[in-house]
Design a protein around this nucleic acid. Structure first.
Lengths: 105, 105
DNA sequence: CTGGATCCAATTTGATACTG
DNA sequence: CAGTATCAAATTGGATCCAG
């Protein structure tokens, strides 16, 4: 296989393969959400873990973060165009998982 | 988000998100290969790691393993229909990575 | 409300040695 | 040649505590 092909796949893996990243992106697809709202929609994710994954997604520029200058803090996360471009892939992942359920224990 | 959607995605993540799994599957797509041939095509992967990932892929039934009864041993790995069904996803991953290169350092 | 700083446990990957 | 067994290293997710 060409090295480039491998790197392309690695790039994608890096971006979507956090345990929750795909799920976060899907949540953000329709609306911007603030931190607490995301938390509410994905209750199983730990507070701190969510912070980390959001940060990574932001670093990879899949989402953007807007901090309202208010007290108490209000921060909104929204998907970027770049992030949006990965949506077909997420959909395909969902479809495949749907038809090919493996033992997810 | 529906719990089911989440589980579908998790299923897919579980299957393709090993560091090398997608790459192994692509290599096997065209031909069955024996262990040493896979190793040759993906030199960066460590012997031991390859064994493990192949074993997991086999457990998830994405590939099958045929052991020829000869000395020295000869083992062939081939992709299953089930494994084949994930190919569009891999292609999409490759495409996305191609157009959206992130710092893979 | 949001998130930084730490530490820890679990998982994953890689290294080394040995076997039929 | 292919694989097992074991261990070490690295990465990741999660828990707890603290702060503006």
């Amino acid at each position: 296989m060409k090295v480039e092909t491998m790197n392309n796949i690695k790039t994608t893996l890096k971006v979507v393969c956090g345990k929750w990243k795909g799920i976060i992106l899907i949540e953000l697809f329709d609306d911007s959400l603030r931190f607490s709202e995301i938390k509410k929609r994905i209750p199983e994710i730990h507070h701190q873990t969510l912070i980390k994954q959001l940060k990574e997604l932001e670093e990879d520029q899949l989402i953007s973060r807007y901090e309202h200058a208010v007290v108490p803090p209000k921060v909104e996360y929204s998907i970027t165009e770049y992030g949006r471009s990965i949506f077909p892939l997420l959909k395909e992942m969902e479809q495949w998982g749907k038809h090919h359920r493996v033992n997810v224990e």
